[in-house]
Amino acid sequence: MSRCDECGKQENMPYQCRHCGGTFCAEHRLPENHGCPGLDNWSDPGGVFDSGFDDSVDDDAGGGIRDRLGIDTGPGGPLGYFRGNMTYVFLGAMWITFLLQHVVLLGISQDLHQALFVLRPSHPEYVWTWFTSIFAHAPGSLAHIGINSIVIYFFGRIVEDYVGSRDFTLLFLGSGALAGLGQVGFQILQNGGIPAFAPGVLGASGAALAVMGVLTVLNPNLRVYLYFILPVPLWLLTVGYTGWTVFQILSVGIGAGGTAQLAHLLGLGIGLLYGQHVKGRRRVPNQLQFGAGGRGPGGPGGPGGRGPF
């Protein structure tokens, strides 16, 4: 059972508005019946509801980045799939990178794996690792990549719908890179210079926690099923995780438990700040719904549909 955001009616088979993310009964499912903020954008000169992936959609003069580069991100275009689907793109990139890590480790060498995928205090000048380390995860640890995948899958879809695919992409990559750089930067300061041997950083936890931080600001009372069983408000989950992370850092250090604790805290902080920046643009759903009817992989330019989260 879900509650209609417009009238409060309990609905067994709710409708999810793909433009504002709200949950509605049959009477209020149409955008015009629930005052959808997206109605203001239906005058789009390109005939497309803007997902936020490309600024040029609302540019009447046609002078946006898309036009200057000759890139078609509209429906049917070569990049149309990515509109509204960057959450899935990042998830796919994570698992592909995870497989590549094992190929390199088993077929070539650990040194090459470190150089390609791990952001290390000893080599912060390897700029590519600022980003490859976001998608790489601890080899052989399904729990590491699995937990990050769950957080990104459920929270990422809501945040991407809210801020648009372009801004979501910048948030994900920017927060992941800054969180990792913050961790290794502090390690360098602790050692009074670049250490010869120090643990590196890899994993999408910083980016995933940034996404969670944004959603915490947008809807702190969003019900989340902890371990898929215990319903808790998102704000409580965020406060609890923050408290535990701070305790770990103060009592053991930024690498407590073999985890980049400072990177996690930085990612969450970036998300909370960005959430305050974008708060109030439009409404967000008041609960996560699991099971059938989830959004398909298509989006505006792809083959899938959009249903309840």
Rank of each mutant, 00 (worst) to 15 (best):
D5W: 00
C7F: 09
C7M: 05
T23M: 12
C25A: 02
D40L: 15
D54Q: 03
D55S: 11
D55Q: 11
D58M: 15
D60A: 13
R68M: 11
L79D: 05
G80H: 01
F82A: 13
T87F: 02
V89N: 01
V89W: 02
F90D: 06
A93H: 00
M94P: 02
T97F: 04
F98M: 10
F98R: 01
L100Q: 07
H102G: 09
H113G: 08
L116I: 15
V118D: 07
P124E: 07
V127S: 06
I134D: 05
N148Y: 06
I152M: 04
R157F: 10
R157T: 13
G164A: 13
R166S: 06
R166V: 00
D167G: 03
F172Y: 08
L178T: 05
L178P: 00
N191D: 08
I194A: 06
F197Q: 12
P199L: 08
A204N: 07
L209E: 00
A210D: 04
W235E: 03
Y241N: 08
V252E: 05
A256M: 12
G257D: 12
A263D: 07
I270P: 01
P285N: 09
R295A: 14
G296S: 11
G304I: 03
G304D: 07
G304S: 04
R306Y: 09
